[in-house]
């Protein structure tokens, strides 16, 4: 759907992007992650043709970006607002017209969305009469109204209360299911976990990691298991575990009295071997592989990256 090939961009002596390449597969939710100042917004602005890259190029459906491509893209920037003195309905239709929709088309779409989000009575209100959350909903509608193939959200959930955030999350996934491709940039990891199929991780103007979220998690899995064993001789068991497996103590919530520890799967062994060995010490109440969260991966890879630099 969208390919970026070795994009570089600098502002004066400051390098905002260095040789960044991306592949966003069709009909997926693509998370563009990274700490503040990593270059996410600059990259998004290049895709939206707000700025031009110094070198590199972007392909949309295999074609180099052209000015008329903007009608296929819906963009919700992090810095967002609406014309305060314009009426809601009028304004959304105007913005949709700028994206190439005809007036009647825009009206029909707007009706659909207003009914769907149950905000039809806002049509004749001025934006300055709306609350911040209400305005955010309108902005979401503005972004999706012209049925773009590619949706780009920059920190979409900032400013939403949990209920509306959930509503928008569902709408985004729904749009993906209808065929849209979604890029969204954030540093909130919990939403990444829930929504993203693919991610790319950026730090200090470079991409340091990308791929399918599950693949990445697999690559980052550490073969560490949390184990709880009901044992008669707690101290003895603990001693053996520490010596044989290098177990470290952890505490997790449990309804049992047990030895709780974290241990590394020995090389050349499968989880079953470990389970069999451990079952000698008593009844196993817990046996869970630690899967890294997106947050863990994020922090870990950024630290690694900074260590290299």
């Amino acid at each position: 759907m969208l390919e970026a090939h070795s994009i570089s961009k600098s502002f004066g002596s400051f390098k905002a992007l260095q040789e960044v390449s991306l592949m966003v597969p069709k009909q997926s939710v693509f998370g563009l992650l990274g700490p503040n100042g990593a270059g996410k917004t600059t990259l998004i602005r290049i895709i939206n043709q707000i700025t031009m890259p110094d070198s590199g190029h972007v392909l949309l459906d295999g074609e180099p970006l052209r000015p008329d491509h903007i009608r296929y893209i819906g963009y919700l920037p992090e810095e967002r607002g609406l014309y305060k003195t314009m009426k809601v309905g009028e304004q959304v239709i105007y913005l949709a017209q700028l994206k190439g929709l005809s007036k009647s088309d825009a009206k029909a779409q707007l009706k659909y969305w207003f009914d769907r989000l149950d905000i039809g009575h806002w049509w004749d209100k001025k934006v300055q009469e709306l609350s911040k959350g209400m305005a955010q909903k309108i902005q979401f509608v503005v972004t999706v109204l012209h049925r773009p193939k590619l949706l780009i959200f920059d920190e979409p959930f900032s400013g939403f209360d949990p209920i509306n955030a959930q509503l928008i999350r569902e709408e985004i996934l729904n749009l993906r299911d209808q065929g849209a491709t979604v890029i969204f940039s954030t540093h909130r990891m919990e939403s990444v976990e829930e929504m993203c199929d693919h991610i790319a991780l950026m730090n200090k103007s470079k991409k340091i990691l990308d791929g399918n979220l599950m693949d990445i998690k697999r690559a980052y899995q550490s073969n560490v298991f949390r184990v709880g064993i009901k044992s008669a001789d707690k101290a003895g068991t603990w001693k053996i575990l520490e010596e044989q497996f290098g177990a470290t103590p952890v505490v997790f919530k449990s309804i049992h009295e047990e030895v709780q520890c974290k241990l590394q799967l020995p090389d050349g062994h499968g989880p079953n071997d470990l389970f069999a060995q451990l079952s000698k010490f008593g009844e196993i109440s817990h046996f869970v592989q630690e899967v890294p969260t997106a947050n863990d991966i994020f922090i870990q890879s950024i630290h690694q990256n900074e260590a290299i630099l």
């Binding site: 939206n48 963009y75 967002r80 014309y83 913005l95 700028l98």
Partner: peptide
């Protein structure tokens, strides 16, 4: 200046030149 104070500028500028 209006687009800047109302912060709609990025939406507009990603639609028109």
């Amino acid at each position: 200046i209006e687009e800047k104070t109302s912060r709609i500028i990025e939406v507009i500028i990603s639609s028109v030149r």
